[in-house]
Design a protein around this nucleic acid. Structure first.
Length: 286
DNA sequence: GATGTGCTCCAAACTACGCA
DNA sequence: TGCGTAGTTTGGAGCACATC
C-alpha cells in the first residue's frame, strides 16, 4: 500500500520506490537518480534546459502570470507530509544543503536555477544569493539560467555583487513577461551585465511589443494545466516576427493546453509546431 | 570497484474525454 | 449523465548497465 493517500494526509513520506499507481506518466517525464549522495532533477522536461537546481523552493505571486503557477500546485500537494521535500508546501524555504549540488555533476549541463522558486524573492537574504553565485562561479563547466520576475532587486543586488566579482560568463539572466503590463522588467534586465539576457514569455497572456535591444534570447509558450488560459496564435506570430526582425533567437516552447485552433487538447497533443516549423533557437554566445 | 548514466516508477488533485 | 481512464506537473527513489 502506498504510505501516503488523500485519506491519510499526515502520514510519513518514505518514497520506497516499490509503490504502484494507476497513473501512467509519459516517458519524457522520467528523470533519474544519478550516482550517490543528494540528488536533484539532473534531467528536466523543460524544453529549453537540461537540468534544474533548486537551492530555494517556494515563492509568492507578483503578477497574473503566477496565477496558475505549476510549481505552487506541485508543492502544495505535499504540504503536511512529514519528511517530504515539500512538507511546507510552497512556503519560501532556503535549502543550504543543496548549495553545492552542481559541483557533483561532472558533465557540463544547461541548468535552470530555481525552477521552483525565484532567486531574487524579497525574503531571500542577500548572503544566500551570494552563496548561490559562488557555486555558479565555481561550477564554471556548467551554464546556469537564472529566471526572475523581480528584476529590480536582481539589478540592485548584482550591482553590489559586481563590486566584489564580475558577473560570471556562465550565468545567463532572464525575466518572465506575460503581457504588456510587465514589459518594464526588461528595462531592469538590460542593466544586468550578464553575457546572455533572455525573456521568457510564458505563459503568454496578451499581445506584446518588446524592446529587444540588449536581449539575446526570447522563449515563448502557452499555459498548460487544467485551468490554463488560451494563448492567441497571433500573439505568438507577432513575437516571432519581432525576434526575426531584431535578429534575436526565438524558442517556441509549447502551445499549452489549447492548440492553434483554440481547442483544448492538452499540452502534449497541442505540441509546439508554429506555422509548420519548430522554433528551437538558442542564444548565440557573444 | 567506483562512479556516472539511463530507465522505470511513484506521489495528489484536478480536468478532459470517451464510452455505456 | 455518470463513471472510468488519461493526462498534467517535478522531484526523488531503486536498479541495471556503462564507463573509467
Amino acid at each position: 500500500m502506498p504510505p501516503c493517500s488523500a485519506t491519510r494526509p499526515a502520514c510519513t513520506w518514505r518514497g520506497t520506490g516499490t509503490q504502484r499507481s494507476t497513473h501512467i506518466l509519459p516517458r519524457a517525464l522520467q528523470c533519474g537518480r544519478r550516482g550517490r549522495g543528494p540528488v536533484m532533477a539532473q534531467s528536466s522536461k523543460i524544453e529549453w534546459t537540461q537540468a534544474t537546481w533548486n537551492p530555494i523552493t517556494g515563492c509568492t505571486k507578483v503578477s497574473p502570470g503566477c496565477a496558475h503557477c505549476y510549481a505552487e500546485t506541485m508543492a502544495e500537494r505535499w504540504r503536511g507530509i512529514s519528511g517530504h521535500p515539500f512538507e511546507y508546501g510552497f512556503d519560501l524555504q532556503l535549502r543550504p544543503n543543496r548549495l553545492k549540488l552542481p559541483l557533483l555533476w561532472k558533465r557540463p549541463k544547461l541548468i535552470f536555477v530555481n525552477s521552483m522558486s525565484d532567486l531574487f524573492h524579497e525574503n531571500v537574504p542577500d548572503a544566500f544569493v551570494v552563496k548561490v553565485f559562488e557555486t555558479m562561479r565555481e561550477a564554471s563547466w556548467h551554464t546556469f539560467q537564472v529566471l526572475t520576475k523581480r528584476t529590480e532587486r536582481a539589478r540592485d543586488l548584482t550591482r553590489k555583487l559586481a563590486e566584489l566579482d564580475p558577473w560570471p560568463d556562465n550565468v545567463w539572466m532572464g525575466t518572465s513577461i506575460e503581457n504588456q503590463r510587465w514589459v518594464q522588467r526588461a528595462d531592469s534586465l538590460r542593466e544586468i551585465p550578464a553575457k546572455i539576457r533572455f525573456i521568457s514569455c510564458e505563459p503568454l497572456l496578451g499581445p506584446l511589443r518588446l524592446n529587444l535591444h540588449g536581449i539575446h534570447w526570447v522563449i515563448c509558450g502557452g499555459e498548460s494545466g487544467a485551468r490554463a488560459r488560451r494563448m492567441d496564435p497571433s500573439w505568438v506570430r507577432d513575437l516571432r516576427d519581432q525576434c526575426v526582425a531584431a535578429g534575436v533567437p526565438f524558442f517556441f516552447k509549447q502551445w499549452g493546453a489549447f492548440d492553434e485552433n483554440g481547442r483544448r487538447v492538452g499540452k502534449k497533443r497541442a505540441g509546439r509546431i508554429l506555422d509548420g516549423q519548430i522554433f528551437d533557437e538558442m542564444p548565440r554566445l557573444v
